[in-house]
Design a protein around this nucleic acid. Structure first.
Length: 152
DNA sequence: GCCAACGTTGGC
DNA sequence: GCCAACGTTGGC
């Protein structure tokens, strides 16, 4: 079992939206590295739901992978914001997984707070210039963040 | 809205 | 294969 972090802009799709929906396809990823990570995801893997471009940004909750990578059909939908004419049902370029709501943290753990934790020094998310929207998370890092969410 | 950091594209 | 130009991400 592996751990991941997945970013979403709360103005587009937030942890509250996922809580309400229960499940959601993670469509619209248009970065090869992020796509490759999604292809590695297995049913039952857990992911931190991260709010990017939020006020503030930070870890908002946890979701579980419930459908392994399948072609992202928004890529061949001309009316979609994620349309990519290079992709087709015959030759899909982009993939998506489906995630299931697990929990919303009682309080968002802001990026600023994450940076205060010495044990998270090597966390990829916190590296300068890190922009990847889907990334693996070390099990010990995942545990630290989950524990942080229980504090106070 | 600004802008640094990064990824992608395309001319050569 | 190099690299300049351009587009995007995301913190602030």
């Amino acid at each position: 079992m592996s751990y991941w972090l997945m970013k979403s802009e709360p103005s587009v799709y937030s942890i509250d939206d996922l809580q309400k929906d229960g499940f959601s396809y993670w469509e619209g990823v248009r970065n090869y590295q992020a796509r490759n990570f999604m292809e590695e995801m297995r049913n039952g893997d857990l992911a931190i739901f991260y709010h990017s471009n939020g006020s503030p940004s930070g870890a908002a909750g946890i979701c579980r992978i419930c459908q392994e990578a399948i072609p992202d059909s928004t890529a061949w939908d001309p009316s979609s914001a994620y349309y990519d004419r290079r992709s087709s049902p015959e030759k899909p370029i982009w993939m998506m997984v489906e995630v299931e709501f697990v929990e919303k943290f009682p309080k968002l753990i802001s990026l600023k707070d994450l940076r205060k934790i010495p044990e998270l020094n090597s966390f990829k998310l916190l590296e300068k210039g890190s922009r990847l929207s889907v990334m693996p998370v070390e099990p010990q890092h995942f545990e630290i963040i989950r524990k942080l969410s229980e504090a106070e």
